[in-house]
Design a protein around this nucleic acid. Structure first.
Length: 322
RNA sequence: GCCGCGGUAGCUCAGUCGGUAGAGCAGCGGACUGAAAAUCCGCGUGUCGCCAGUUCGAUUCUGGCCUGCGGCA
């Protein structure tokens, strides 16, 4: 309870950990609206592969930032930030509690910490030039351009991390200042978040991921991707580089067999979950709730509700509501 | 039962003319500020089938045993 700051609930955790389910169940007890913090669920027509909440769930509880872009439209952290802020304002104006739900750690962090992302928009032309330079003279040549513009980034970025190296150059070019010198607004000035994270034993989560992938194939992920390609969305689009889509595209292009594809998706999804673990362990302020097959879902839900009550996000204790 | 080939990392295998071993894949750790389901960096995790013999020293050579595969019966 801090005056002047907007209270928000955040539910995060690795892929397949049950974030959506938890948010839906909380929504049945408290007046929350869900803001998806997921880089892939923004795209229309990409449903099965992103495990998008069902239309039924979306009709019961307002969901924001889902299906807001066509797969070939530009989308970025910056736009997420802007749109999420707007959504938060609208939700609080309605007297509801905004609830950020998702596994895209960068989005959540950028939002809560108030990353200042204005002033250096992406420059496709420049990026292309730099890529060509790298292809011709090597990654190191591009990396070395940082030496006198942004020595700090030159040191902290690996030459092969072209994406970030180019971004640092792009930022300098647009602002005249090194990207490493930017400052953020800081979490304390803006929001008062209660962050819940679903924590899983890794092996158990991996098994859950495998099951989910099998389920995605059963539900027709291959058809979904085929339709996207038929609609004219190229397999080279950024949206089509996401997990599952990438692998199924190469299957449809005849590069892999179905069982290879399925195994690849499982492996890559597990790796993704591992990267999420790395990211979230560094994230401060997450209250971890242990989940797992040997724990009753009702206990997990109860713990989540008690926590948000204890943190003052809701005045009614969970018991009185259920 | 006999003959042949094999048993080395989670998997597939390489290797040591005797000085306790290394590739690929899998796995693990990390980074991450307008692409983040993206991108990038780093790391061998080992009873060399078991027992004995020879040897200063055996995963390597010898013998026996166990076991897998193929062939002949």
């Amino acid at each position: 309870m801090t005056r002047g700051k907007t209270q928000i609930l955040v539910i995060t955790g690795p892929t397949a950990s049950g974030k959506s389910k938890l948010s839906m169940d909380i929504a049945s007890l408290y007046p929350i609206e869900i803001i998806s913090a997921d880089s892939m669920q923004v795209y229309k027509y990409m449903d099965i592969g992103t495990d998008k909440p069902s239309l039924d769930d979306r009709s019961k509880v307002p969901h924001h930032l889902i299906d807001i872009k066509y797969p070939d439209e530009p989308w970025s952290v910056e736009e997420f930030q802007r749109r999420a802020e707007t959504a938060v304002k609208e939700i609080t104006a309605r007297g509801n509690i905004p609830c950020l739900v998702g596994g895209t750690g960068l989005y959540i962090r950028a939002f809560l910490q108030g990353y200042r992302l204005t002033g250096a928009p992406p420059d496709a032309q420049f990026r292309r030039e730099m890529r060509e330079l790298a292809a011709g003279k090597g990654n190191r040549a591009v990396h070395d351009l940082l030496i006198d513009r942004d020595p700090r980034s030159h040191e902290s970025l690996h030459p092969n991390d072209l994406k970030r190296v180019i971004r640092a150059l792009e930022y300098f070019r647009a602002t005249g200042r090194p990207i490493s010198s930017r400052t953020d607004m800081g979490i304390s000035e803006r929001y008062d978040p209660v962050m819940l994270g679903l924590q899983w034993n890794r092996e158990e989560l991996y098994r859950k991921i495998d099951d989910r992938v099998d389920d995605q194939f059963r539900r027709g992920i291959v058809e979904e991707v085929r339709k996207l390609l038929v609609k004219g969305y190229s397999h080279r689009l950024r949206s089509m580089q996401g997990l599952v889509y990438k692998e199924v595209c190469s299957y449809l292009l005849g590069l892999t067999t179905e069982s290879e594809t399925r195994d690849l998706v499982k492996r890559n999804t597990r790796r993704f979950a591992r990267r999420q673990f790395t990211w979230f362990t560094r994230e401060e302020g997450i209250i971890w709730i242990t989940a797992g097959n040997d724990r009753l879902w009702s206990d997990i839900l109860a713990e989540a509700c008690e926590t948000i009550h204890a943190k003052g996000l809701v005045s009614q204790p969970p018991g009185n509501r259920v």
